[in-house]
């Protein structure tokens, strides 16, 4: 099987028009060039407002670049597609659908809900929510909801999975559990993953490479290779050094 999920950012620029008549346009991204290999896990990290979400939304096809382009497996990204799944910080489950129906929405939209019933169940089991099929989102905790959002995206077998601070709203304990679950899922699916995060530790624990970004106009400042063996230990010397390396890039070198 040919590995899929290769991403190319080619001279990417995004300028938002001014919000008011007197305001000036906001340049959120300034000539971003990068490559992501199939199956890689990339963490995007940088100060607030620097354009991380914008980059992710461009990749998802929810925004259009002002200049440059994004290619996924050689195809130009022009509009959203089920091949590029997106998980927001807020789980954004549809409150009027049960857990089962939320997870099954992708298949349903493709007209394959009935055929994929077993698959839907498999993905609910995969994220550990067996028994909650008929519940509505309001009956679930934040962490459980986020796992449903993950299953809802995974069931479409996307080539690329995008996360915008997916665990930002979770407590530290749940977050650590989610990290391991995510890595387990990744072992089985080898989807390319790009995750925006504020948490350096999260980035070092999960990612193969960490993209650091500068404040506006955002450029890709430095790409850090996290070549630590897995499973990674958060208290190992190498791990802590990696964290400090990234913190240094973000804070001190101007």
């Amino acid at each position: 099987m040919v590995a899929t999920g290769q991403i190319t950012f080619n001279n990417l620029r995004k300028v938002f028009p001014p919000r008011t008549e007197t305001g000036s346009p906001v340049e959120a991204l300034h000539h971003v060039n990068a490559e992501v290999q199939p199956g890689e896990f990339i963490a995007l990290i940088g100060p607030s407002g620097c354009g991380k979400s914008t980059l992710l939304r461009l990749l998802a096809g929810l925004e259009h670049p002002s200049q440059g382009k994004i290619l996924v497996d050689g195809d130009l990204v022009e509009r959203p597609s089920r091949e590029r799944g997106l998980v927001f910080q807020d789980p954004t489950l549809y409150p009027w659908l049960t857990i089962e129906q939320n997870v099954g929405l992708g298949p349903k939209l493709a007209g394959e809900y009935r055929e994929k019933r077993d698959l839907i169940q498999q993905f609910i089991d995969l994220v550990g929510l067996k028994g909650f099929e008929k519940n509505y989102p309001y009956e679930l905790s934040g962490g459980m909801q986020q796992r449903v959002a993950l299953a809802r995206t995974l069931i479409n077998y996307p080539k690329v999975l995008l996360f915008d601070e997916p665990f930002g709203a979770l407590d530290a304990f749940t977050r650590i559990k989610m990290h391991d679950e995510l890595l387990k899922i990744r072992e089985r699916t080898d989807i390319t993953m790009v995750m925006v995060t504020h948490d350096v530790e999260e980035a070092v624990y999960l990612a193969d490479r960490v993209f650091t970004m500068t404040p506006r106009p955002a450029i890709l400042k430095k790409i850090v290779n996290v070549n630590l063996p897995r499973p990674r230990r958060r208290d190992s010397q190498a791990f802590i050094e990696k964290k400090e390396e990234i913190l240094d890039i973000l804070n001190f070198t101007a």
Binding site: A60, G61, L62, R79, P80, S81, R82, R84, G85, L86, F88, D90, T92, Y94, L105, G106, L109, A110, R152, T153, N156
Partner: peptide
């Protein structure tokens, strides 16, 4: 909510 539509977009909705 706008994000409801964006999620639908990424799930392949017409």
């Amino acid at each position: 909510k706008k994000t409801f539509f964006e999620v639908a977009d990424t799930l392949g909705a017409t």
